[in-house]
Design a protein around this nucleic acid. Structure first.
Lengths: 335, 335
DNA sequence: TTGAAAGCGCTACCAG
DNA sequence: CTGGTAGCGCTTTCAA
């Protein structure tokens, strides 16, 4: 592969000149530009980004750390970052495989080695302390879907607690009084907070989830189906079901209907996340919109700002996001 | 950020030695290793991947060129590549934004500048000639979802024609005799081939798609809905509907049911791709499985092989994939 | 087993 | 406007 030297030699100019035309630098004669451009073409020259990164100390790369790309939620997150990357003529470097604190750390370290200018990190397993440490060491690092007070201005997160409250208010306004809940068994804050917000709001009006009507499962379609079966097995009745996420909610609806319950006529089901799926399901799923793509874009932009200004002070834009109720067909007024 | 020099100086050894322990090179005394490791830790040293790439002439990077990450189909593709990247301790570099031949070329050029060891490219707009040229210039480049005879061993593709035939055979075996078809209006081969295979097979038994019952639309849920409305507006009846992809098929089912047709009781609907969605829809969608993740993994592995052996000869594994019928609930026997 | 030194391809500074 | 050149951080001979 041709190098800048080859181009310089054949064009009969110095590498400095070639570099100038490459970077559209000032003060290059038209003649030189043309000559160099021509040779570049002939040689099929392509500047080596690694060499550039080495000398300029910036990689024009935005790193993203997510569990995987299969989950549409994370794909949206990556897509959001990708958009701001592209807008800034940067590339997306992906690091996945998060199953434990160690693998999360590895994924992040890989990006550090690549000297990503910005890193958008979705970490659920690493401790606050570890993340705080990382944030101070790595300038462009921004946390997404996580809130750590000490580095609040580096966090872009969703208020899950408020999400739970909004869910409760919606169901309450629909005249429901007997509730069930399906949540994720995973040991992270999100399900806890959503449930807590939901219950808090119910209790504020003297209501609550029916005894024994909280079930746990994997946050998947199957998990939702199984949890619903357990709910049904209890023999207790409920008219409204708040589910941890859309996949589980769709699984729940499926099981409910298989057991003769109409949604929403008999039971209203409310999901969370508003993934693509929720618009495709029948009935179309009422859910809480998690603006992950938008959040991802904000996170990337914050990272960009930090690295640009070398200051930690970001714009005033709040990094806390509130989920928005999306009323579709799976919830309705309880007669 | 600490460099190898800092480590060497503080550890009281040469950079060569530090490099050796970094690369677990041979012939380094235990004492040196320990000493260096300790200093690395203290300094929070992280080797600069760009510098490494520059000198070793390999970037430990696999590039992927796809339109976007939002489409679950492409997310799966990226995910497949990512898996083999991770298995080989490499990273995924993403390049998107394909809307024209120029943007596709740009996306590819970016990856070339990064000197990706392997590139998995999904290109629909670039000409065969351009791609052949690229393939000869870029060793690790592999095309996915496209077949170009001149570089057949660098192509991993799906037999869309056969897919159409399989679809026809399935519907025919289900006793259907009056067919409609919804396809994509996009100017690429895939829809044409699927339709062509479908019709060929029908015609081989003296059947065919009803006159005027081929509709075109965007390959999305909405596109499927609109196309179905046009189909219905024709007033003609049909008992089986073959749709370009799952998203459109789900849109079609939705519109069909809104108009009083039961699926599959009144009309059987067959999709294509077998994306996640198809398992979540009600009725669950019968479709043709497009093993894109598997294909992506194969493509990445072929690229890896080529760059390793510096030969274009890949393993014997066929690069042509045949879609597999996945019979679920949206197609049934026609009484 | 270790160190010195020559680059990898490029940018940017300094002279001219 | 142009050329010479000193690195960027690292690997890899070649000697010692």
């Amino acid at each position: 592969m041709a190098t800048i030297k080859d181009v310089a030699r054949i064009a009969g100019v110095s590498v400095a000149s070639v570099s100038r035309v490459l970077n559209k630098g000032p003060k290059v004669s038209k003649k030189t530009i043309e000559k160099v451009l021509k040779v570049m073409q002939e040689l099929n020259y392509s500047p080596n980004a690694n060499a550039r990164a080495l000398v300029t100390q910036k990689s024009t790369t935005i790193g993203v750390v997510i569990p995987d790309l299969i989950d549409p939620f994370f794909a949206s997150l990556a897509n959001g970052v990708e958009q701001v990357a592209r807008k800034n003529n940067m590339q997306l470097l992906l690091s996945t495989g998060l199953v434990s604190a160690e693998t999360e750390m590895q994924a992040i370290n890989v990006l550090i080695e690549r000297r990503c200018d910005v890193m958008v990190v979705h970490s659920k397993k690493l401790s606050d302390a570890a993340l705080i440490d990382l944030a101070t060491k790595v300038p462009g690092l921004v946390l997404i879907d996580r809130y750590i007070e000490a580095i609040a201005q580096r966090c872009v997160w969703l208020d899950n607690l408020e999400g739970g409250r909004i869910a409760a208010r919606h169901l309450l306004a629909l005249n429901h009084r007997s509730f069930a809940c399906i949540t994720s068994k995973h040991q992270i804050d999100d399900p806890l907070l959503r449930l807590q917000g939901f219950q808090t709001e119910l209790q504020s009006v003297g209501a609550d989830i029916e005894r024994n009507l909280i079930e746990y499962g994997e946050p998947t379609l199957q998990g939702g189906e199984m949890a619903t079966q357990k709910l049904l097995a209890s023999g207790k009745r409920f008219s409204a079901l708040f589910v941890y996420n859309d996949a589980m909610a769709i699984g729940a609806i499926s099981t409910l209907e298989d057991n003769g319950f109409k949604v929403p006529a008999d039971i209203s089901v409310l999901g969370f996340d508003d993934v693509l799926l929720s618009r495709y399901s029948r009935p179309k799923l009422s859910t809480l919109n998690y603006p992950i793509e938008e959040m991802a874009m904000q996170a990337a932009n914050i990272g960009l700002e930090i690295t640009a200004k070398r200051s930690t002070n970001t714009s005033d834009a709040s990094c806390k996001h509130i989920p928005r109720l999306v009323k579709r067909e799976s919830t309705s007024f309880k007669q």
